[in-house]
Amino acid sequence: MSKTIFITGASRGFGKLWAEAFLKRGDKVAATARNTDALNDLVATYGDAILPIQLDVNSRAESFAAINKAKEHFGGLDVVINNAGYGLFGTIEETSEEEARSQIETNVFGLLWVTQAALPIFREQKHGHIIQVSSILGIATLPLLGMYNASKFAVEGLSETLSQEVKQFGINISLIEPNGFATDWAGASAAQTQPLEVYSDVRSAFNEANSAEGVFGDPDATAAAVLKLVDAENPPLRLFLGKHALPWAKNVYEERIASWEEWNDVATAAHGI
């Protein structure tokens, strides 16, 4: 049975790739972008099956209007994918107030506005699936991506909480957590802070680690996984994409648990009773 999908950030990268994967198999797609001209090729190929919607997710009013437009146009919604977002590269010290606020506004509040807009529709229908595009960097961290890490940690906490609140209404929540993929996320889509020379060694180490062969996955290979997630009767709360994510997460949690256990006597004494 075909589904109706609403996906943000569909002008490039994962968003456009997944939108086309849905369209190819016969789903209907409301695809949002700041510039909908980037969707002209999909409209030419798939016609009425795709509804391009101009959207800046930073606007709560626009987000609600876009969700409602898609619902009215197609008669309902089955899946909402919050994919819009970008990476800010730079150390914490280098990050300006404007850069920090912009990163959180888009990656966290933009996702929140679209999520809030979808929930009343899904509650009324008694079904729906919200998929949040997070990252392995919502579980682990890398230097030079502090504000991006922070935004994805926020998305993880928000979405896990939401899953507990809305399960009773037949609404599923999933977090997609990719490791690095060869999209333009770190290129044209990214923002950069003004670098400080004192962090040149950190930058060099970061660039060297990310130039190694096999670090980045093939974006095209993710489409099949996303289709399976959308079609799952009982979708998971979390889904990694890529072969590096799970080993990395295991290592991070082993280190955390070891540290917590080492300091558990102090923690227990702090309870007081």
Rank of each mutant, 00 (worst) to 15 (best):
V198R: 14
F22T: 04
S59G: 11
L77R: 02
A258G: 12
A224M: 00
F206Y: 15
K71I: 07
E72S: 14
L237R: 05
R101L: 14
Q132Y: 06
E124C: 00
G217Y: 07
L175T: 00
V43Q: 11
F22S: 00
Q132D: 10
M147A: 10
L112E: 08
E97P: 08
K3D: 08
G180H: 09
T106A: 09
D56R: 01
Q194E: 15
W113D: 01
K152P: 00
F74Y: 12
A19N: 05
F109M: 15
V202T: 15
E62M: 14
D27G: 08
I50P: 02
P219C: 06
I92A: 14
E233M: 11
A84V: 01
A65R: 07
L237F: 11
G26K: 08
F109V: 04
K250W: 10
S102A: 15
N179V: 12
I104Y: 05
G13I: 07
R256F: 13
A19R: 11
D48G: 06
L237D: 10
L51D: 09
A61Q: 15
I121P: 01
S96L: 05
I104M: 15
V43S: 12
V133M: 15
I139F: 13
Y86L: 14
D37C: 03
L229K: 10
S96M: 09
T222L: 09
V114C: 13
S259C: 04
R256S: 12
T32Q: 05
W113A: 03
L162W: 04
L42Y: 12
K28R: 15
I257E: 09
P236G: 10
G9H: 00
A31P: 01
F153A: 09
V215R: 11
T32R: 01
T8R: 09
D78F: 07
